[in-house]
Design a protein around this nucleic acid. Structure first.
Length: 154
DNA sequence: GCCAACGTTGGC
DNA sequence: GCCAACGTTGGC
């Protein structure tokens, strides 16, 4: 089992939006970065836990936990010419972009803000702090558990 | 809104 | 295959 951190801009899709989805489940699509794609396509599995992080907002924070509920599969939006995620260079035969489905597990009583993460020496190695722009990234089991604890989660 | 970091594109 | 130009991300 691997642990993950997925970023989202709450103006686009927030954890509250996820909570309102049927069965609190949604497709995590629109990943258009190769390194993020590689993690998503090659290393995710059903039941992997995911930290949800809100970026480009105030305050930026880890706001809850989801779980992966599907294998990776080609992101349908890449084939949809009406979608903002349409990619004319990809094909059904050899898709370029992938997505997974996730289900909400818990919303933290107190979101773990980026400033808290920076202040916690045990979290100093997080990819979030080093490679700020990577939208799908692995976290260690220890990092995951500490963030859940800081967030007041279960 | 600014701007640093960094990923992607495309000419050569 | 290099690298300059360009575009995007994301914290502040």
């Amino acid at each position: 089992m691997k642990y993950w951190l997925f970023k989202t801009e709450p103006g686009e899709f927030s954890i509250d939006d996820l909570a309102k989805c049927p069965r609190q489940t949604t497709r995590w699509d629109g990943i258009r970065n190769y390194q993020a794609r590689n993690f998503l396509r090659d290393q995710t599995s059903i039941n992997d836990p995911v930290l949800l992080y809100h970026s480009s907002c105030k305050p930026t924070a880890v706001v809850g936990v989801a779980v992966i509920v599907s294998p990776p599969y080609p992101d349908p939006a890449q084939f949809d010419s009406k979608s903002p995620y349409f990619d004319e260079k990809t094909s059904v035969e050899s898709p370029r972009w992938y997505s997974v489905d996730i289900r909400l597990e818990q919303v933290f009583p107190s979101p773990v803000e980026l400033t808290q993460i920076k202040a916690e020496s045990k979290l100093g190695q997080m990819i979030l702090l080093k490679r700020g722009r990577l939208s799908v990234q692995p976290v260690t089991a220890a990092e995951f558990k500490l963030i859940v604890k800081l967030g007041g989660g279960k």
